[in-house]
Design a protein around this nucleic acid. Sequence first.
DNA 1: TCCGAACTGTGTCCGATGGAATCAGTTATT
DNA 2: AATAACTGATTCCATCGGACACAGTTCGGA
Lengths: 224, 224
Amino acid sequence: MTVEFLWGGRARPTRGPKPALTLEGIADAGLAVADAEGLAAVSMQRVAADLGYTKMSLYRYLPGKAELVAVMVERAVGAPPTLTASGWRPALEEWSRLLLGRYLAHPWTIEATVGRRPLGPYEMGWMECALARIAELPLTGAERLDTIAVLAGHGRMLAQQAAAMVGEAEMSAAIAAVLREHGERFPQLTAALAGAAGGGTDQAFEYGLARILDGVEVLIRSRS
Amino acid sequence: MTVEFLWGGRARPTRGPKPALTLEGIADAGLAVADAEGLAAVSMQRVAADLGYTKMSLYRYLPGKAELVAVMVERAVGAPPTLTASGWRPALEEWSRLLLGRYLAHPWTIEATVGRRPLGPYEMGWMECALARIAELPLTGAERLDTIAVLAGHGRMLAQQAAAMVGEAEMSAAIAAVLREHGERFPQLTAALAGAAGGGTDQAFEYGLARILDGVEVLIRSRS
DNA sequence: TCCGAACTGTGTCCGATGGAATCAGTTATT
DNA sequence: AATAACTGATTCCATCGGACACAGTTCGGA
């Protein structure tokens, strides 16, 4: 399946004609399509056509479309970073912001990673590098995992939110249009939106990040 | 588009034959298919066949598949609850747990709600009922919105996680299988998983919920 | 009372999708 | 040189969402 494909080393066979394509080249072509026109525009035909080959040629390098998307995701999230901040909290903040940056650079990764799927080496590497910075905290293994899961989920949610509305203005516009007609049914929502003068995605992200890490800090202090 | 369809009242015409189907019946048929076999199994043909009609009949009630899914989502999340807990924190906890319950009851709603899409009346009702319980807190409108967004995102993430791995055991098994071969590359992950004796989805959810609300509490206390 | 307008569900057709099977041509090993 | 392995292309298929025209049904206005 996909998991062996992501993790297993693909041995280059020696006989036969030289392959004209590479797995990385195919994935990059698909990645370019997804970046430019969204994940829905990524089809075997489209990717092959962009490379100047026929659709079925790709199946010499990939078992199916699921594997193509999996490799695209791996290349989109990219190699895990080296965190420069010192201290667990600045490190987690840096990690979260970098992860959000990757999501924002390739918004389609979010819809490509819903549902059950195997994790690739890069994705595990991201987890690893975050866990390394909180290993010494007085938290259990499950708590450490859950902490970075909450942070990753927060980043995902904001990236999705940012991708869904081109700059919060559209969101306000769409919601405001509905509220203009049915506003009386949602007084609290109307009031909250009226007081929210378009802070933007960054502000929403930083707010949630600060709340989560404040909560972690409360837990840590209660144990020391 | 979809937004008028979700919000606009559909006037029942008086002339012509009596409609044999209803929008709600169609949506419920699709919902049953999605619950049983996943969102991918929901096609116009499939839903129509389950109802004993042909595919094109559905287009008399729905402009397209996007609207079908939107109505399915609305019926899946259901009417917003009446929160019984008193105090802003217990109320938000109750709200989050109820939302998680809806997600877990219909896991496909998560993949059905990625990307840009209009919110339905029920979804806005959920936001409204949570906002009503934190209206009196010393938070700005944007902060109130961001707070429930973080909570909703946390619930979404955990529901997705729970759906992707049938009970955390599969997750541990899948990851453990990979780690058995490449474990030396991920020492922190290995250690954290070894110490995580399968707490389960509930425990992970409660952990994140407590951290987020602790963080909100810190902010509130700093302002009073 | 009748006739036309509005509405119903159905059948046919289309382009695009992911993928299986097959085929002719190319290349390294024996 | 011969063989086995591999390449990319061609053809074919089921399924998808949806456009369109069609025959049958029902109500409102004359």
